[in-house]
Simulated assay, not measured.
Amino acid sequence: MKKELHIFFTCLMFYTRIPCPKNITHHPDYLNKATRYFPFIGWIVGSISFLAYSLFAQFLYTETAVICSIVISVLTTGAFHEDGFADVCDGFGGGWTKEKILLIMKDSAIGAYGAIGLVLLFLLKFRLLSESILLFQVYDSMAVFKIFLLFISAHSISRLAAISIIFTHEYAREDASSKSKPIAKQYTWKEVFGSFFFGLIPFIVLSYFDYKLILAVIPVFITRYFLTRYFQKWIGGYTGDCLGATQQVCEVVFYLSILFLWKFI
């Protein structure tokens, strides 16, 4: 149990800015095992984001409360995944060879592609999440609980889509310069089982209240498939930035899928 707690806190420290015990470090062995808890971090970030939304919604309009919840979620993770998304936009937008793409993604400066990508990403998150919440509030008697599950499910299943890439694809960089290198070396059935367990449970509970919502998983993993195919074509695998970009894109696709299913099916 003590070892599992250490692994969990290692995961929490690596993927968020939430304070952890002082004895927790980025030990490679624990980081490899921390993969199993990555979707569970989505439970935490999603819960914090929902609490922020609920608090601000008491005093502000829904749209403003949603913006505040997005800000809080970014602060909670330190923009870890958003940074990866921006780097991928810059790298694949400005590079035409594997070496050039990896070099651009390694650059800490943000370029035009990354800036434009982030603006569009946040606009989509804001609009899709706001519209989903408004629909739940109008048509559902259990709106608050379902909105809570929506927040958690979006964060957990998108993280599952991202972390599952390390189970199926090779790491692209030949050096140790990427943020994902410590978790790219090895994994066991525990990491696979833990990832899928924590990644799918909130979504399954949400689908229990409306069975048609289970279909939302299909577009998410279709998106994951095409992203990995694109990464494989251009750089021969994935990097930490690719995982971050996958999480962000799949989160948006999840909101879009839920909204489509709720309105049209």
Rank of each mutant, 00 (worst) to 15 (best):
S49L: 04
K3S: 11
K2P: 02
K212L: 12
K263C: 07
H155E: 10
T239G: 01
Q247N: 15
F198H: 09
H27L: 02
T188G: 09
E4V: 11
C242R: 02
V138F: 13
G237N: 03
L124K: 06
G78P: 08
G94T: 01
Y187W: 14
T168N: 08
E191T: 04
K233R: 12
L149C: 07
W96E: 04
S178C: 03
I163G: 06
S130D: 14
V220Y: 06
S164W: 03
E170I: 09
K179M: 13
T246F: 01
W234Q: 02
M142Q: 08
G95I: 03
T239H: 03
S177M: 06
F203W: 01
C11M: 10
S130F: 11
L102M: 08
E174S: 14
P21Q: 07
C11N: 13
T64F: 14
T16N: 13
I157T: 09
G94A: 03
T168I: 05
S54F: 13
V138Y: 13
R159A: 05
A161Y: 02
L124A: 15
K181S: 12
S195I: 03
L206A: 09
P19E: 02
H169C: 11
I147V: 15
E63V: 06
L261P: 01
S158M: 07
Q247I: 09
F80T: 01
T168A: 12
A245P: 00
I24M: 11
L129H: 08
I41D: 10
L213W: 15
Q232K: 12
V138H: 14
Y211I: 12
Y230D: 11
S257V: 08
K125E: 14
K2V: 10
F9G: 12
T168E: 04
Q248A: 13
I218L: 15
S49P: 05
L123C: 07
F167V: 03
G91S: 00
G237I: 03
P202Q: 07
I157W: 00
F80M: 04
G46I: 03
I18S: 12
I133C: 07
Q137M: 15
I163E: 10
F231T: 00
H27Y: 04
G46F: 10
K263T: 14
Y139D: 05
L118H: 06
I70V: 15
F59T: 08
S164F: 09
K146L: 15
A154N: 12
I235G: 13
